[in-house]
């Protein structure tokens, strides 16, 4: 058990991820689903950033430009890994843009169905298809 104790940061991220996923699949209101998606997204970002952390390391902003000193610091892993930071930094901004796209879909759905609750939308769809098959 204690062999896995060093992984608790990852496990905490996964628990948060699952709370977000629960909000996505168990709630009816579409905006609530998108809020749950935001929680999941931030938790995934947290998971990636946690992998880039180096114990006793510091933020990847160089203290000196001296080639020799930087090479030593890079070999001794004095700086945390910048690669997950870069990937996640862009993912956050893209995430808010795609979230806005999702919210605009919800607004349009509300405009045409008169409701943003999932079960009412499904019931309206069911009603329409039943009416269409009766007309045939």
């Amino acid at each position: 058990m204690s062999a896995y104790l060093g992984l608790w940061h990852y496990h905490a991220c996964i628990v948060l991820m699952m709370v977000g996923l629960f909000a996505v699949i168990s709630r009816q209101h579409l905006v609530k689903k998108i809020l749950g998606l935001t929680i999941t997204q931030v938790s995934v970002i947290m998971f990636f950033v946690a992998m880039g952390k180096v114990r006793d390391g510091t933020a990847p902003i160089l203290a000196t430009m001296e080639a020799e000193a930087v090479a030593t610091a890079a070999r001794d892993v004095d700086y945390s890994n910048p690669i997950p930071h870069v990937l996640m930094l862009t993912a956050i901004v893209v995430g808010v843009a795609t979230n806005a796209l999702g919210l605009s879909f919800v607004v349009r759905i509300k405009a045409s169905y008169g409701s943003a609750e999932e079960d009412e939308i499904l019931a309206a769809d069911h009603e329409t298809s039943k009416r269409e098959s009766a007309a045939l």
Partner: peptide, 12 residues
């Protein structure tokens, strides 16, 4: 270039 920041943060 010198501290935390860049185009994404400034834009937001």
């Amino acid at each position: 270039d010198f501290g935390p920041g860049g185009g994404f943060q400034a834009g937001v």
